[in-house]
Amino acid sequence: MLSVAASPSATSRTGRLLRHLDGRLTGQGHRIIPLDVRTLPADVLLGADPRHPAIVRVAELFAQADGLVIGTPIYKAAYSGLLKCLLDLLPQYALAGKTVLPLATGGSTAHVLAIDYALRPVLSAMGAAHIVQGWFTLDRDLTVGDDGTLVVAPAAARAVEQVVDQFSATLHRTAPQRDAAPGSDAAHHRAVATTPVSVR
């Protein structure tokens, strides 16, 4: 599974929320590959070169993933420009056959429909097989402690955990039987989280 954080900020609450949820999904038996889009070379993203090795590698990660969590801050009622740059460089049907969970954060409930009206149509056009119920979390419900630990307000935590659990259940239902075979290499590796991907 690929967990894609699409904020340009190194201290993004969106990114922290995704990494927090990665732990929950790992505990449910999924192998998570975290991808922070901001670590990709800016000149490659802005230069729109789909043949650059960094983009080719990311396209491979998308192709190999059975599911994707895509998290973005909402700016001016739309997903981040960083995510737009990446999606534009991927193959037309990079999400074909994938199960996708869209997540967003923002400062106002005025942006709550951005997932359905801005992001979901793009994911659908890229061939996603299942786009499960997404979730929008208000910035004020995400605080960061002095030690860098993310704290999610209780009501927001329950809501986002519910959609993550539904996403996880959908993945388990659609996973090939061989992927879940007891003792198989796939079953062993799926339960191990990896370090974040930084492609240069």
Rank of each mutant, 00 (worst) to 15 (best):
L2Q: 00
S3D: 05
S7C: 05
P8I: 03
P8F: 12
T14Q: 09
T14S: 12
G15A: 08
L17S: 10
R19N: 15
H20I: 03
G23T: 03
R24I: 13
R24Y: 12
P34R: 02
L35I: 05
L35N: 02
A42S: 15
L45G: 07
R51H: 14
V56E: 13
A63K: 05
A65R: 00
G67K: 00
T72S: 11
T72N: 01
I74M: 06
Y75H: 09
K76V: 08
S80N: 01
G81I: 02
G81E: 05
A94N: 08
L95H: 05
G97F: 14
G97D: 12
K98S: 06
T99A: 11
A104Q: 05
G107T: 04
T109C: 08
A110V: 06
A110E: 14
D116L: 03
D116G: 04
Y117Q: 05
V122E: 01
S124C: 07
S124H: 08
V132P: 00
L150H: 07
V152A: 10
A155Q: 14
V160Y: 11
E161H: 11
D165F: 01
Q166K: 08
S168Q: 05
S168I: 04
T170A: 15
T170H: 10
T170Q: 13
T174S: 13
A175H: 02
A175P: 03
A175M: 11
R178T: 13
A180F: 08
G183I: 07
D185M: 11
A186N: 06
A186F: 09
A187N: 06
A187K: 01
H189Y: 14
R190G: 14
A191I: 06
T194Q: 12
P196W: 10
V197I: 07
V199H: 02
